[in-house]
Amino acid sequence: MRNPTSHGMRISAHAASLPRRDMLIMGSLLALLPGCKIVRNGVADKTDPQKPDTFDANAYVDSLWPKVSTFFQAQAHDLSTVLAGLAKDADAADKAYGQPPAADGGAWTFAVKGQGRVTQSDSKSARGTLTLALPNVSSPVILQVGPVVFGSAIRDCLPFLDFATFVNQIEYAEVSHALNAKAIADIRHGVDFGALVGKTVTFSGGMADPAASGETDVTPVTLVVSGA
């Protein structure tokens, strides 16, 4: 949402493609504009034939991406701090560093960052991974580098994405899929992962509580090779 008041008249054309919360805000902002008619029930509504399902998750994620990047730059916690906190007092660490699960039975997720040495690159599976050794972290850290990545840790650790503001679980899922695709495409761009073994990399990304899977598994949003 960029400078909505100056683009007020264009908002309705895009309304159907936005999650409900953004439209709520837009609706509220529109209410401040004199002479604008507020359409009742101006939320995405698939039962209204005037508003077919036009949600474009990739476009939505593209528009959201600057906010995602800023969030990981400014808000990601040091992975070693999060892991040490979880080992000491999981409830306290969840609240200090994490986002609660969107669903009952889901894991807490964390925006994390760190720097470590690549000990292994596995590209036999389409689920390619880098294994890192980090100072002050006893377990190996797995970075999912794709091309296939599993899970929704990136979406889930973002405090500004809320399941309740999407029309249904499909849209919510599409956002996760698009976030993963965007992050992994950026990370894979021109990188030979096999050549990274032995090098030091700096990363940020989303991580589900390792207790859920038994692995410290990060879906990266940024990956930078030191000295490259």
Binding site: S152, V167, N168, Q169, I170
Partner: peptide, 17 residues
């Protein structure tokens, strides 16, 4: 269902997950 505010609650299995 594809509309909010009609039912009091919708307790939904996370079918996608």
């Amino acid at each position: 269902i594809n509309k909010s505010g009609v039912a009091v609650t919708q307790i939904v299995s996370n079918n996608y997950q």
